[in-house]
Amino acid sequence: MTAEEQLYRRAIRITIVVIAAIAVIGAAVAWAVVGAAGAVAALVGAGVAALGAIPTQVAMLVGHTKPPHVMAGIVAFSWLGKMLVIIVALLLLQGVESFHRGAFAATAVTGIVASLVVDIMVLRKARIPYADPGT
């Protein structure tokens, strides 16, 4: 297993743990403040955060050994796919009367920002050369 592969796997594991914690905490807080509808909305928000973060990390794990144009395609299509799913989900949730948008937004934004922090922290500690030796 290469250093890059270990890096991407570590980022995925940490992101899953962090978003799961945000889901539990967000749902508990939303339940206490708003009720069951808020807890459901917070869980959906955590799911959206996971859908926003994890596919990109998996695409990097899959594509890092491929030629640059193939890796770019994998990352681009994973991004496009998750955006389409998120847009469709948001359109469907728009019509749900009891859906608490505040709990959803707070959890989704917290999860997405946390996943970015995970990516930055993991990448900062990585020792991956960006130049080929001897070239």
Rank of each mutant, 00 (worst) to 15 (best):
D132K: 12
H100P: 03
V44Q: 05
P68C: 06
W31G: 00
A46S: 13
A46Q: 09
V62A: 12
Y130H: 14
A103R: 04
A46R: 06
D119H: 13
T65L: 13
I128W: 00
G35Q: 01
G38E: 03
L80D: 08
A32R: 09
P133Y: 00
L61H: 09
V118P: 10
Q94K: 10
L7Y: 00
V85G: 06
K125D: 14
A46D: 09
K66Q: 12
F77V: 08
A50V: 03
G26W: 01
P68E: 07
V96R: 13
G52C: 08
L90E: 10
V85T: 08
L51R: 05
T110W: 02
Q6E: 04
L116N: 11
L7N: 06
V88M: 12
R124A: 12
K66I: 00
A27R: 08
A21I: 10
M121R: 11
R101G: 11
V109W: 05
V118L: 08
G52R: 10
V17K: 05
R127P: 00
L92N: 14
A27N: 08
F104E: 00
F99S: 04
A23S: 15
R13N: 06
A46V: 07
A106E: 02
A89M: 14
L92V: 14
S98A: 12
V44R: 04
R10Y: 02
L90P: 10
I19N: 12
A72H: 08
G63Y: 04
F104D: 02
K66T: 02
P55R: 10
G26Q: 03
R124Y: 04
V40H: 01
P129I: 00
T107F: 04
A27H: 04
I14E: 13
G95E: 10
A36P: 00
L84D: 07
K66H: 07
I54V: 15
S115E: 10
V96H: 12
A27C: 07
Y8P: 02
A59Q: 11
I74V: 15
A3H: 10
W31N: 01
P129L: 04
A23P: 13
Q57W: 12
R127C: 01
A53K: 13
I128A: 02
L93H: 01
E4P: 01
I54Q: 09
V75P: 12
T107M: 07
I14C: 05
T56K: 07
D119A: 14
G26L: 02
T110S: 15
L43D: 02
A23K: 11
V88F: 12
V122F: 02
A20G: 03
L61A: 13
A106T: 09
Y130M: 14
A28L: 14
L91K: 05
V29I: 15
A59E: 10
I25V: 15
I112V: 13
V88L: 14
G63T: 04
R10C: 01
V29S: 08
P67S: 10
V70H: 15
